[in-house]
């Protein structure tokens, strides 16, 4: 019905006092800044990051207590056998463990709630009053979601490094290929892997944002996003669906492990990032198509 961001425009000449002010860079970025602050000042966001930081602590403590029984690689999460020898591996174990469930869950909450949550609490229309346009608001929402992806990954990685270095010895790191690299080079790879993991979540953030523009209920959007990740991962586990699996959002997620080889094996990582870019393009534009033409009633 009403398009709330529409403000009355006078036929403003160049010298008119009323009407849009000239665009400035800080002015353009103001919306992004306010979205970022809004996201990271919410108690919920901090709680989610806290939960993510607990994952490595949990794994670390369990491995520490059960060290006597853990030898031999009795299944269990990836790299678990290496953790006792080198705390740095706790980071990789924690990332591999949280990537299928915890990380997408938190990203789904933040991305799914980004627009739908505003609509549910009735703040969306006020947000649209700002003379920024819906496209820019959507871009700001996506930026905030991506910032959260990075923060979430770093929460796991940094907490893993800290706990790993407290509980276990830290030193030269044995790569998957059996080669050994120094601690400095290993930390560089931690940074690289964190970046790749954060970017791997971009597609999900875009999907979450799109779902968020479809509904006025934050909970519905969050639940659908998280549910979608679970469904996709289930589909990814059926060998019969071999043909479509390279197109599933989560298919290449664990490819970050390829960066722990010597030399690094980038093939699957590029496939992952390419797929994420495709998802961002398709679902980002779908969200834009929906959000810029939708009636905001709440």
């Amino acid at each position: 019905m009403s398009r709330v961001e529409t403000v009355p425009v006078t036929a403003a000449g160049p010298g008119a006092v009323a009407g849009p002010r000239p665009q400035t860079v800080p002015g353009f970025l103001a919306l992004f800044r306010s979205e970022l602050t809004l996201t990271f000042r919410r108690a919920r966001t901090l709680a989610l990051l806290g939960v993510l930081a607990v994952v490595p602590i949990l794994i670390g403590v369990v491995v520490k207590i059960e060290t006597g029984n853990m030898h031999g690689g009795d299944g269990g999460p990836a790299f678990i056998t290496q953790v006792t020898q080198n705390g740095v591996f706790l980071t990789f174990t924690a990332l591999a463990t949280s990537l299928p469930i915890f990380l997408p869950m938190t990203v789904g909450v933040v991305a799914g709630d980004s627009v739908a949550g505003e609509a549910a609490t009735g703040t969306l229309r006020y947000l649209l009053v700002a003379p920024a346009g819906r496209s820019r608001l959507l871009a700001a929402k996506f930026t905030a979601a991506m910032a959260f992806c990075l923060a979430a990954t770093l929460a796991v990685a940094v907490s893993g490094l800290l706990i790993g270095s407290i509980l276990f010895p830290v030193g030269d790191v044995t790569l998957l290929s059996g080669d050994t690299i120094g601690l400095g080079a290993a930390l560089l790879r931690v940074v690289l892997i964190s970046g790749v993991v954060a970017l791997s979540l971009a597609g999900l953030a875009a999907v979450g944002l799109f779902i968020s523009t479809l509904t006025g209920s934050g909970i519905a959007a969050m639940a659908s996003t998280v549910g979608l990740v679970i469904i996709v991962q289930v589909l990814d586990s059926f060998p019969q669906l071999h043909a479509i699996q390279p197109w599933l959002l989560t298919h290449y997620w664990l490819s970050f492990g390829d960066l722990l080889r010597q030399p690094m094996y980038w093939h699957a990582v590029w496939q992952d990032l390419g797929l994420q870019a495709l998802y961002v393009a398709v679902f980002g534009s779908a969200a834009w198509a929906r959000f810029t033409t939708r009636d905001i009633t709440a």
């Binding site: 849009p20 003379p131 534009s285 834009w288």
Partner: peptide, 27 residues
């Protein structure tokens, strides 16, 4: 038309449905 959206010529009536259809084509 919205001032900041900017891309719509002034005076042209707003046709939401047509615009929705056009934009859905993008994804």
């Amino acid at each position: 038309p919205e001032p900041a959206g900017g891309d719509e010529p002034i005076g042209v009536p707003y046709r939401g449905r047509r615009r929705t259809a056009a934009r859905v084509l993008v994804p």
